[in-house]
Simulated scan of single mutants.
Amino acid sequence: MPPTTQPTQLLSPGLLAKLERLELVSRKVFRGRMKGERRSKRKGQSVEFADFRNYVPGDDLRLIDWNLYARLDQLFLKLFQEEEDLHIYALIDASESMNFGDPTKLHVAKQLAAALGYIGLCRADRVSVQALGDEGRRAPVLRGRSGLWKMLQYLDSFGSGHNVSLHEGVKQFSLRNGGTGVVVLITDLMDKEGYESALRMLVGRQMDVFVMHVLSPEEIDPPLRGDRRLIDVEDGDQTEITVNAYVLERYKQTLQSFLKSVKAFCSRRSIAYIPVRTDQPVDEVITRYLRERGVVR
């Protein structure tokens, strides 16, 4: 799908103002490439004191603690917490199954990616928003608030139809991106090949992995009755069923069992699992729901 001239308004001005005060929580400490606003394992120069160490000839004399020298008659250097940037990846499942609901799951996924991406841009992190299976273009790596426009243009430039499996999409991402950081996979997890291998791949990369599982109300509680022909939008498979109270109850039980198994799978591998309904306002999801779950602060 070619890019449009005006990006769709994914983030309202009111939400943008709220996002500027938030920060994405990384449960791991990564070594960044540039100065930023994240605490690092390394000691450097900033306004936040970290530790002392003995003076070694050649050290910067400006870092000597002269008050400590006056008391102990020994030279010590003041060490400060070095702040570095973080790489935040937002991976969007753009398969045809995401083009469902009102608003569609894909639209909500784009809103979530844009919101999380803007939080990272405001914190001087490196941000990359990518559609799984979108091999034709390399998504830009952005930094700073000025990158918001390019991020929104990229999000507006693609639609559904990238029908690669989650495994293949994550594999392509891994081959194109060699770094570590925080990765947020936004998907409905509707993949006949399963989701497990894709998530294992991200965990194996030593990423801090978040899964935002997007479902529509119609998928959670289908408003269907009577004889129906169901067609898989991704591979065209068809089946005919009669939808009655018994079938709907079995469907709901199967769905709850699936959601429980996904949550358990993620928990065992320290993956943050966040279920999201498309009828939840994105403003509420980001500023309240994700804050309560410790994803942002």
Rank of each mutant, 00 (worst) to 15 (best):
G133D: 02
I274V: 14
Y55S: 00
E96W: 00
V183E: 04
L112N: 01
P281Y: 03
R176Q: 14
E82C: 07
H213I: 15
E48S: 13
S40C: 07
D227P: 02
V164A: 07
E168I: 13
P13V: 03
C266F: 05
Q238G: 05
T5A: 12
K150G: 03
Q206G: 00
A17I: 06
L112K: 05
E234L: 09
P7E: 08
L15P: 02
G179K: 15
E168M: 13
T180N: 14
A139F: 01
N244G: 14
L106F: 12
R250W: 10
L230Y: 07
V182W: 07
Y55F: 14
G144P: 00
Q9F: 01
S160Y: 06
Q256C: 02
G226N: 07
N163V: 09
D134S: 09
Q45N: 08
F265H: 04
M1W: 11
G58Q: 08
F30I: 02
L121P: 03
F210L: 13
T180M: 12
F80E: 02
L72Q: 10
F265M: 07
R145Y: 01
I64F: 00
E284C: 01
L10A: 05
L132Q: 08
E284K: 14
R137H: 11
D93G: 10
R291P: 04
V209H: 06
S165H: 08
Q206N: 13
E218D: 15
Q45C: 01
D208I: 03
L248F: 08
S267D: 13
G144E: 03
K263A: 12
G169K: 02
N244Y: 00
L121V: 10
R268Q: 13
T180E: 15
K28G: 04
L224N: 01
N163L: 05
N244P: 05
S40Y: 06
T239N: 02
Y273T: 01
H107V: 11
R225F: 15
I231G: 02
L116G: 04
T278N: 09
F258G: 00
S95P: 09
E37K: 14
A50P: 05
E193M: 08
S261F: 04
L79A: 00
D156H: 13
P2S: 15
R205G: 06
G159P: 00
V282C: 09
V233Q: 02
K260F: 12
I231V: 13
R250T: 06
L152A: 07
T180A: 12
D65M: 03
L61Q: 07
Q74V: 03
R21T: 13
N163W: 11
G169Q: 05
I241P: 01
S174F: 07
R137Y: 06
D156A: 15
P217V: 03
V211K: 04
D156M: 10
R71Y: 03
R137D: 07
P217C: 04
Q6L: 12
L24T: 10
H213D: 10
R123F: 06
S146A: 11
R53M: 04
A50Q: 10
Y69I: 08
